[in-house]
Nucleic acid binder design. Structure first.
Lengths: 196, 196
DNA sequence: GTCTATATTGCGATAGAC
DNA sequence: GTCTATCGCAATATAGAC
């Protein structure tokens, strides 16, 4: 085995296991075994189980800074929103474990919440609020909108779609082929509402 | 201590602790100590830690059947939707632990998911889909709506509002006094969209 | 850098007294 | 119905060989 290979093998294995059963649901023994390395490597590289969890969390939430890229490259307000929705869906497609860390930290925060999770999510919300405010200023959106409520409504729609997967598998096609239809659909509901 | 008192004391203590740290994050020892009863009471009443967790879960999700009451007492489609939104918010206000079990089971299902959680949430979604379909039939809603997507958009808005509490505390007033404003706001966004 | 072996602590469950 | 005491096992962490 190459030098340092144990470290990355531990991170990728830990990502899956922590996502599936949480920080307390996995033992260091099981983790090391699943990664095919010695149990002592966890302390050696990460200082213990919590250090490994912290590294996993850091990696998971590093992708959140992409919201600034979206805000920069798109010029139209509605395009920014569409880009955001697409990004969230693609993000969860590329990383099936992220939502588990996301909800787990929001409802059962660990000691790493305020240092890693809160800033990452906070940044996304802050930029989205800015986008909505810009839309209101430019007379694209209604003047009576509360920007934060509006952002949470939008983020909620798309995050909950993924969250609900387990209970809606029989009702709806959750495959990526339907993603563009879904995005159009959500853009429609969010901008025009459901009334005839 | 009265007869049977240990049982209910264990349930209420376990609800808080399981919500805060999950099934694996709490030991039976700690649980019994926090409840002020003997450790052996857990096996005596619930057959073990998992049995206690199962009882807690059952109690948490029993409230979900209320959706049928809403569907029965309200006659107008839009009133049904407003009632649903109000119910969800009040439900989380009355029970701050529910959302933790909800998201935890949806992202890290335990063995009790399919027996307790899936049927409870599934029922709510099923009734909501029915309500949206009814609105489409009655020409209140647009014909091109996908009912399931629409339900998830609505449920997502309101569930995510609560989920986001920890990261939006500084941005928005999360107190119950604002609930009715929030409900009106969400009804507005959901029915009419955000466009001017 | 990686291993095995082990020290120490805490786990869930239960037997048996009251 | 509730308790204390204890069994057997698994947990994390680390010492020390290579």
């Amino acid at each position: 085995m190459d030098k340092g290979d144990s470290k990355s093998k531990l991170i990728s294995t830990a990502t899956r296991l922590f996502a599936e059963r949480g920080l307390y649901g996995v033992s260091v023994r099981e983790l090391a075994k699943a990664a095919g390395v010695s149990i002592s490597m966890v302390s050696y590289y990460f200082g213990g189980k919590e250090g490994l969890y912290s590294s996993v969390l850091q990696e998971q939430f590093s992708s959140f800074s992409h919201i600034e890229e979206i805000n920069r490259v798109e010029t139209e307000t509605l395009k920014k929103i569409e880009s955001y929705i697409r990004w969230i869906i693609v993000r969860y497609r590329n990383n099936p474990y992220l939502l588990r860390f996301y909800t787990s930290e929001l409802t059962n925060p660990t000691q790493f919440f305020s240092l890693i999770v809160q800033p990452a999510i906070g940044k996304v919300i802050q930029v989205l609020v800015q986008i909505i405010e810009e839309g209101i200023s430019n007379n694209i959106f209604r003047k009576d909108l509360n920007p934060v409520d509006t952002v949470l409504a939008m983020a909620g729609m798309v995050n909950y779609y993924i969250l609900s997967t387990l209970v809606t598998q029989e009702l709806i096609n959750h495959s990526p082929e339907r993603d563009e239809v879904l995005i159009r659909h959500y853009m429609d509901i969010f901008t025009k509402g459901i009334l005839r």
